[in-house]
Design a protein around this nucleic acid. Structure first.
Lengths: 235, 235
DNA sequence: CCGTATAAATTTGTCAACAAAAAAAATTTC
DNA sequence: GAAATTTTTTTTGTTGACAAATTTATACGG
């Protein structure tokens, strides 16, 4: 993956760019790094225990995936997607993930389904236990794991990027209680996959994505309404 | 695009990473840089007239898109996709491009259709004139332009990557006369888009992609047969 | 007290030098 | 003459230093 290989399979004590990028991806999915967060180079150097060059290269990779916003002479910030960009992300997800779902359904072994079921149980458990951070991460990761079953690394990479950006979007435009995904919709998806109904699974995915997006725009309308009240109140 | 912005809209005399990456993309699509070509840093520095750092960052971006293969302490090479990777690329294209096609059909203005028609004319002209290099580039670019009509930069970026990798695949596994695309299939696509038949356009795209892929595996079988003859001949 | 202007400190962007590894060339040996 | 070994050359990876820009802090004047 990433087209970078080492000649020796040596134990890599120092993190490489890919590892750093993945860590930041996860932190964004978990909402530990909200949109707009400054990522100063020296701070990241300390955090990961690597040189500045390594950090700069990682930030470039993140920027190329629209997770980070690189501003010249001003530094790196966690991206703050606009509403238009949010629409773009969901359009792309609707264009890609149903087919990923279809492929995954066709490819899935019983082991794959069992692992996904385990994951779903953890999702439910985290939800019941009130572990919000874990619940958020697992619900995002569900989509990534599903894409991994498809066995297509290109699609997996793209889904990972889109899920991460979705986490930023929900953080910006979602209501306080909004999660990445409702776990019961994931359950429906899993059953469709288990019985091998690829068309049904794809449909479920579309519905699921539309549902997430609708929650977002709903909360945005609410915010707009609040702003209007404030404006009128000043008169 | 790329999440990198400049504070000033200054005239940039020195090429940035994105520009260098794009130039290399185009050279790969045109088959000027075949699979396995060594990309030495100093040579690229001379070619683009930039410092080594800029080149190294560009190569990292290309590696993250699987266009370049970075081998530690050995340098950068234009990627040589395996057959499995080739299958993955076509699977991803079939998963993504029909929907890109659908969206583009819905979004397309008459101007968009006219520009695409112009492009198609150029494609035919290059073909008739025997300008092979131009014909190859234009046929690959058709898919990119189509994705641009969709107005979704995520999908466009992904399509660009997949088209570029396809060019490498055809260079490796395609017969000598194989082109990226047959222009008449592009014509069918365009008419479907013009009349707004998005489902038909999507179907045409699937058929088109399957056709390209089938040509590839055909030629691979031929190559295998040649190898077998050689092996038997040595006995 | 607040806004503006100046100065200090921090942060980013770039380059050059150096170390390590690999490739190429020359030498030796059979 | 060919294969193996050593030496030289080239190429890559990394570090540190420095310049440029921005941010923060400070001083000044209204």
């Amino acid at each position: 993956m990433l087209g970078i290989s080492e000649t020796q399979g040596s134990t890599n004590d120092s993190l490489d760019e890919e590892a750093i990028v993945d860590r930041i991806y996860e932190a964004v999915i978990e909402r530990q790094l909200p949109a707009g967060t400054k990522l100063s180079e020296t701070a990241l150097c300390d955090a990961f225990g690597v040189g500045r060059m390594r950090i700069r290269r990682s930030l470039l990779l993140l920027a190329s995936r629209n997770i980070v916003d690189l501003q010249s002479n001003r530094g790196a910030y966690i991206a703050s997607p606009t509403q238009d960009e949010a629409r773009e992300v969901f359009q792309a997800r609707r264009a890609i993930e149903p087919n990923v779902c279809r492929i995954a359904t066709e490819q899935a072994t019983t082991d794959d389904v069992d692992l996904l079921a385990d994951h779903l149980n953890n999702e439910h458990a985290a939800h019941s236990a009130g572990d919000r951070r874990l619940a958020i991460r697992l619900s995002g990761l569900f989509h990534v794991k599903l894409s991994e079953i498809s066995g297509n690394s290109i699609l997996t990479r793209t889904v990972k990027e889109l899920v991460t950006r979705t986490s930023l979007i929900i953080g910006l435009f979602g209501a306080a209680g909004t999660e990445n995904c409702r776990a019961d919709e994931h359950s429906k998806l899993l059953t469709a996959i288990r019985v091998g109904e690829s068309a049904e699974a794809a449909e479920q995915m579309i519905a699921h994505l539309r549902h997430i997006e609708s929650q977002i725009y709903l909360s945005t309308d609410q915010k707009r309404a609040v702003d209007l009240v404030e404006i009128f109140g000043k008169k």
